[in-house]
C-alpha cells in the first residue's frame, strides 16, 4: 500500500471521528442547557433536543444512500427506467441548496410548534427525519456512484476473466478501489447535514425566544456549527484531490 493512500485514509477517518465527537458534545450540551429553559408547554420538546436525532438519521441516510448507489450502479443497466428516474431525481435534489431544506423544515417546524399545543409533535418528527434523508441521501448516492464508476472496466474484466462472480468482483476489486471516493462522498454529505443543522438550530430557536436564544449562547454554537461545516468541506476537497 502506498503512503499517500494511508495518509488520505487516515485524514478521512480522523475527520469523521472529530466531527462525530464534536457533534456529540454539542448535542449533549445543547440538550441539558436548553432543556431547562421554560417553554410554553412543558410536554413540548425544545428545539435543540431534536439535534439528538440528527446523528443517527444522517448515518442511516448515508448508509441507505451508499446501498442505493451500489444497487443502481452495479445491478441495473444505465438504460433501466427506474435507474434513470432515480438519477434524474438525485440530480435535482443535489442541486437544491441546503438553506432551502433548512427553511422548509423550519417552516413546518415553527408553524407546528407555535401553532398548536403539542399535538404537532408526531408530524414534526417525521418532517424532520424526511428533510434530513432528502438532504443527505442524494449527495451520497451521487458521489458513491461516481466513485464506483471511476473503477476502470479493465480491472473488472480481468477479475471476471478469472472466473470471479459479480459479488466477488465487487467486494475484492471495486470496493477497495472506490473506498476513498465513497468516504469522501459521505464526508461531503455529512458536511451538508451539519450546515443544515446549523441553520435549523439558528433559525428555529429564534422562532421561540429571540432574546433568550441569543443570550443563552446558542448563537455562538450556531456559528461553531457553521465553521465545522466549512472545515469539513475543506477536508473534503483534500480528499477529492487524492488520485485514487
Amino acid at each position: 500500500m502506498d503512503k499517500s493512500k494511508i495518509v488520505f485514509h487516515s485524514i478521512a477517518l480522523i475527520t469523521l471521528v472529530v466531527v462525530f465527537l464534536f457533534f456529540w458534545y454539542l448535542i449533549e450540551n445543547t440538550h441539558t442547557e436548553i432543556g431547562q429553559q421554560p417553554t410554553a408547554n412543558s410536554q413540548q420538546p425544545t428545539a435543540d433536543s431534536h439535534l439528538y436525532l440528527l446523528l443517527p438519521i444522517s448515518l442511516l441516510a448515508i448508509l441507505l444512500g451508499v446501498a442505493c448507489a451500489f444497487y443502481l450502479e452495479e445491478r441495473l443497466p444505465p438504460t433501466n427506467w427506474f435507474r434513470r428516474l432515480i438519477e434524474s431525481e438525485v440530480a435535482i435534489f443535489t442541486g437544491i441548496p441546503s438553506l432551502l431544506y433548512g427553511l422548509l423544515a423550519v417552516e413546518i417546524f415553527v408553524s407546528y410548534t407555535l401553532g398548536s399545543s403539542g399535538q404537532g409533535w408526531g408530524v414534526l418528527f417525521y418532517a424532520e427525519v424526511l428533510t434530513f434523508i432528502v438532504l443527505v441521501m442524494p449527495l451520497t448516492i451521487r458521489t458513491t456512484q461516481a466513485a464506483l464508476r471511476s473503477v476502470a472496466t479493465p480491472i473488472r474484466e480481468s477479475a471476471y476473466a478469472l472466473g470471479a462472480s459479480q459479488w466477488q468482483v465487487l467486494s475484492n476489486q471495486v470496493v477497495p478501489l472506490a473506498f476513498p471516493g465513497i468516504l469522501a462522498g459521505c464526508c461531503r454529505a455529512m458536511s451538508r447535514a451539519l450546515a443544515a443543522a446549523a441553520l435549523l438550530m439558528g433559525i428555529h430557536t429564534w422562532g421561540y425566544t429571540h432574546e433568550t436564544a441569543i443570550s443563552a449562547g446558542i448563537h455562538s454554537r450556531y456559528v461553531l456549527l457553521l465553521v465545522a461545516a466549512l472545515l469539513f468541506s475543506t477536508f473534503f476537497s483534500f480528499l477529492k484531490e487524492n488520485p485514487t
Binding site: 476502470a152 479493465p154 480491472i155 474484466e157 480481468s158 476473466a161 478469472l162 472466473g163 470471479a164 462472480s165
Partner: peptide, 18 residues
Amino acid sequence: TEVRMQIGMVFRKPIPFR
C-alpha cells in the same frame, strides 16, 4: 463464471490488481 474459469483471457494492456 464457470465458463470464464475454463476459458481464461489475457488482455492487451496488463492490468495487475492493486
